[in-house]
Amino acid sequence: MKKRVIPNDVIIVMVVMVVIATVAVVRMRQKPKGDVNPYKYDIEQYKKVDMALIGYCEVAEIKIDAELYGLAVDDDQIYVTGDKLLLLFDKNGAETKRIELDGAAKCVTVDADKKIYLGMADHVEVYSADGNCIDRWKTINKKSIITSIAVSESSLFVADAGTRQVYRFDKDGSLRSSFGEKDEQAGVPGFVIPSPYFDLLIDRTDQSLWVVNPGHRQIENYDEDGRFKKAWGASSIKLLGFSGCCNPSHLAMMPDGSFVTSEKGLVRVKVYNHDGEFVNVVVPPNSFDEHTVGVDLAVDSTGRIFVLDSSRSVVRVFEKK
């Protein structure tokens, strides 16, 4: 039988067809491509803030060569804690004292007698204004992660993210009480602390206690015995509320009783009035580096807002426009 010979040009056509078919199949299996990736998640849009809503301008900054954690101000000094460091500055930003610590102080507060209280990981240390350690209180709990402290005339309050409790101490270091347990009947939601940010302050107008409940995106008011009074705050990516899983991360109070808040994630600093109504923006998200966290706040008696920018290792100072 005569063997049929396939002409070369037919073979070439067949090869081309196979190649075209293969490319077509591969193309069909391919996922969407092009300039616009359908899965791109744009979070930049949430960082935009209407300039008209920004009520403050930056007037100064104090550059500090250290990893920074906590911030407090009084009438004539600025107190900053860093890794194993407590630094004091005058109101012009000149360093006046540098005190070496045994560990990291995540938060700091100062009383009317200029005693400096530091929140170490699981205990409080007390320093005199000239930098001498005058007391080291007992460890609260092995699990403690102290994130905030505030001092009144007679008591010191400690926010502990590790045990999710607020502790009240006498100023000699004796523990008086603690609270934070969820109590549905009393309308107390309990503190929900998904990450180590748990702030509190003493109200400048009535000496009551305000505690951030970050997992509920609200700020709760208690009397000094830990009885719940009221709360404000809402969950929202929009400026009116607090974004993400757990915010605000930090809290401060203006001389007139307005609140200053800072958030992590979508990092922004805002002012709310004493009833919790949004007033304006101090620092918009685009003014922070990406992944900035731990923006501690303090306000002096003239209403200047001090913002600890841990990413840039600076204390930034803002004044009303």
């Binding site: 929900v192 998904p194 990450s195 997992g215 993400g244 899983c245 757990c246 994630g265």
Partner: peptide, 8 residues
Amino acid sequence: CGYCELCG
């Protein structure tokens, strides 16, 4: 993870 109710 924080086991958050509102998860980003």
